[in-house]
Design a protein around this nucleic acid. Structure first.
Lengths: 180, 180
DNA sequence: AGATGCAGTGCAACTAGTTGCATATGGGGG
DNA sequence: CCCCCATATGCAACTAGTTGCACTGCATCT
């Protein structure tokens, strides 16, 4: 599984609490790997047992105490091991494709309406990514190392959303034409 | 979950055995929804209990007996219900993005090598899809109904693979430049 | 005063999906 | 003759991920 590795990458960039990790998985990391806070807490516990991360309890004033996690030597070893170990290319999972394929057994217009709605959501995400791109990486040609890698991951998100958006538009166009 | 619905769509297009379904999930349906045979057998059993599909045992000569599944009225109802019920847009899950983001903590060249390998696999899949497109849908402008939907799903696969391929090329180019 | 929201951690029960194994029939190749 | 392959179905045990709930404490909005 990769959640451990997602956590290792994120904690390596900056140490933090389970709560903070959950926030990150709603934002940057979450653009290409999602996880709920329950899953994160459970996994952090397991990672402590494995010796991959160390935990420090921090007493706070005015808010609940927290546990700050850091990547230990075992975690670094595992990170490096995972990075060199090849994996399978991602299997595409398009629920909308499934619905489209089944559309003629039900309400074709309802499926079309859902595709229109998804189209708009992809357009919105794409806008968000484009803003990040302009704001955080105004001059991509000068990037190097970790910063370059971050930029390239964002480029992947942009390409994925753009492809989904274009596909939705193609489907909407073709289905509207077919309805006439 | 959507496996039930994937099976309903597939069985609606043509009735068949669990084994046959598993074959289909290795091919056409599998391009956008994968499932192992164990999962399929278990789900089929549950669907019989739910009254969504009916099963007929067929004695065979020369090979093991089989169970042919068909979509029943309950299954058709469920299919229609599912088609009108909106769902979330797919969360993008890019393990390669994760590795890229973590690359600077380990062996950058190993990550690059994996991206090159994935690039080739996406190119291969894309070729397969392009062959299907030319062979099965030589004149897309004339398509209608179910055939049109099948074509559009294939178009989604093509766009997804093309986007992944282009992204891999962008990453490879940028990382090679950075290495110099 | 009460509601809402953010920060913070966690259990219990469930659904989804994977991996390894077991079993049976019959055909083809070494 | 034995092993592998294709057809065909399935259990058991595991890992992964979701959903719903419970608790604390402070700040801010109504």
């Amino acid at each position: 599984m990769a959640l451990e590795h997602a956590i290792l990458v994120s904690l390596r960039e900056r140490s933090g609490t389970g709560y903070e990790l959950a926030r990150r998985f709603d934002k940057s990391i979450g653009f290409f790997w999602s996880a709920s806070h329950q899953q994160i807490y459970r996994t952090l516990k397991r990672m402590v047992d494995l010796g991959w991360v160390t935990v420090t309890e921090v007493t706070q004033h005015g808010r609940p105490d927290k546990k700050v996690y850091e990547v230990g030597d075992g975690g670094l070893d595992e990170l490096r091991r995972w990075l060199t170990q090849p994996g399978e290319p991602a299997a595409v999972r398009m629920e909308l494709g499934l619905k489209l394929r089944g559309a003629s057994f039900g309400d074709t217009d309802a499926v079309l309406a859902e595709i229109v709605s998804h189209r708009d959501q992809h357009a919105e995400r794409l806008d968000v990514y484009r803003v990040f791109e302009k704001r955080d990486f105004p001059d991509p040609a000068t990037l190097s190392g970790q910063r370059l890698h971050q930029y390239l991951v964002l480029r992947g998100g942009i390409r994925a959303e753009q492809a989904l958006l274009d596909w939705c538009d193609e489907v909407i166009h073709a289905m509207k034409r077919d309805r006439r």
